[in-house]
Design a protein around this nucleic acid. Structure first.
Lengths: 349, 349
DNA sequence: CTGTTAGCGCGTTCAG
DNA sequence: CTGAACGCGCTAACAG
């Protein structure tokens, strides 16, 4: 490269790297030569010498999940605007894979990590300490990890769930099903057990379950374990569980669904039972999508600011990369309650 | 690090790097020391000396789009299985951004690139030559680029569209709308113009439009430009355009939607017009989702193997990385036609 | 089996 | 303003 323009290699490096002094004419010559031979500076070598990789790592459960897709989009847009690229790793919600992913990112010397962690408490989050020991800031997104001293960008799942369930109650419902419960085999009968289990599972799920319980408490409605789905968190199981709820002698008149697949599974169960949304069973779900608008009746939903979660997390991360003292706070973004037509007063079937 | 275990640095490197000979006891000692001080090998330095980054680059229009989310998941799973990580870049369907993304990947010395390109022809795909000049294999996914000598992993959009439209025709329809047409301002009146424009736009869109025309030809149905949506490819415009079609004196009795948002937009237009799916207007769309099953009636859809497109593209790429001669072929994956209940004989409103 | 040595391609002094 | 020399942390040959 240097030879191509008839200058020393460091002069070439200076013009291409955009640092130090270079006379205009030499500059032109170098640029022309670079263009001519299709020269591209080796970012790896640059990173080695500067210690900056201009890459951030993102760890999520599943990039194919539209929610994470939105979050990652927000992150990568913000990163791109600052000249950073994004390495995305999926963990299938498995902690060991999350640890491995973190190590990969440490090895590749990313400048920062954003993670929607599957860790339930600080004790199972030692891998983030590792990253920090290597000078790599970490910020959590979508999920906080209780006890972990890390910035986290989240929504208030508990409040959003509570609000939704309270609206159901305000419409007159007292038998409200909770779909996407704790992934346990045995259904906990006691309310206390339920809370314990919620606290020992995925943070978002636990918070939403708590919000549901909060709303019941506020209105003095007694908790019934039969109205909480348990088992594997997949659409088919939601369908099965809701079908069972609907067959109860005192079935739910409303359903609160904490995720898209919980909603579609529930909808299938309604159809299986020959029941209609709103008229027979009221529904509210998390994560709005354009489909929710075209159903008949259109679905009342809680919208999460997916991209904003990502961009905000990136901003916090870049703050740390720029050397700001980590504030270690919970950055809470607003959800939006979108009222449509899937909630009506209970019917007495 | 080396000092920590009391051995030479290359011995340490050998055990950690997993190459060359190391005696078991020394090996243990090194591993222990590494563990103790939380040592992690610098992958950047390794890449510099080996020329292998163990990273592949993926370029798509928008990682938040569930279709690309699925494709990327397939790619990253296959890559992960081979010890590679994935750098994902979104281009917003803009060619200049795609060129910039390619350059970033070249700079970072990725070992291969998979791209859903926005390029319409070989002439606008010089950036891939650049990558190849740097020894980086490129494989296309989701979209072929006519005239470009590159492997491409796609589905047969034209055949799938043709098949779907023929089924509509078989059900008795002769007025069939095409939703998600060419993004032009002025509606082309002539069939020939329409074909020309289709060929000059996004490959998948053009192929699907061709398939639509093929089906009409087969059955001797005369093409009517008024039944093809034009303008910006966003849900709201689909709604507007379909509303106009429905207001025609001889309106469509069936709609073929080439994408999710085209489908939801069309569904909104039907509702605006007080029309029902199947009973009043039959519908078939691309890209199945769990929502399509819970609509009433459930939607007949064409399912694309999103993840398989990704994994297959990765396999082809790794073949090239392993030094196989590029076969330069079109790898075509099967779509699945999912018959549900949104197609019925035409009604005479 | 192990230590030594020479690059990989940059950024960064430091003379000139 | 420009060129030469060194180091980033690792792999790859090569002696020992």
């Amino acid at each position: 490269m240097a030879a191509g323009a008839g200058v020393g290699r460091s002069t070439a490096a200076r013009t291409l790297g955009g640092y130090g002094y270079v006379s205009p004419d030499v500059r032109e010559r170098v640029l022309a030569a670079a263009e001519r031979i299709g020269y591209r500076a080796n970012a790896l070598a640059r990173s080695m010498s500067t210690g900056i990789s201009n890459t951030i790592g993102v760890i999520v459960a599943d990039i194919a999940n539209p929610f994470f897709g939105g979050v990652v989009r927000g992150i990568s847009d913000a990163a791109h605007a600052r000249g950073y690229d994004t390495l995305v790793l999926s963990t299938n919600e498995k902690l060991p894979e999350e640890v491995a992913a973190t190590n990969v990112l440490i090895d590749k010397r990313v400048d920062g990590i954003i993670v929607a962690s599957a860790a339930l408490d600080a004790a199972s989050a030692a891998h983030f300490e590792q990253a920090r020991d290597h000078g790599i800031p970490v910020v959590l997104v979508d999920r906080a990890v209780p006890g972990l001293e890390l910035d986290a960008v989240v929504i208030d799942n508990r409040a959003a769930a509570r609000d939704a369930v309270e609206r159901l109650i305000a419409a007159g419902h007292r038998r409200i099903g909770f779909v996407w419960g704790p992934p346990v085999q045995e259904r906990p009968r006691l309310r206390r057990e339920m809370v314990d289990i919620a606290a020992r599972n995925l943070w978002t799920d636990g918070e939403r379950l708590q919000g549901y319980l909060d709303a019941l408490d506020d209105e003095g409605i007694v908790f019934d374990a039969d109205l909480v789905m348990v088992g594997e968190k997949v659409e088919e199981n939601a369908r099965v569980e809701v079908r069972q709820m609907l067959a109860l002698t005192d079935p739910p008149t409303a359903l609160f669904c904490t995720e898209t697949d919980a909603m579609t599974g529930s909808l299938q169960a309604l159809r299986d039972a020959g029941l209609r949304v709103a008229t027979d069973v009221s529904m509210i779900g998390f994560d709005d999508s354009s489909w929710a608008r075209v159903l008949e009746p259109p679905l009342t939903m809680i919208e999460q600011p997916m991209q904003a979660l990502g961009t905000r997390a990136a901003e916090v991360l870049f703050g740390a990369i720029d050397g700001q003292e980590p504030s270690v706070e919970l950055h809470t973004l607003e959800t939006r309650f979108i009222e449509r037509a899937s909630v009506a007063p209970p019917s007495d079937r």
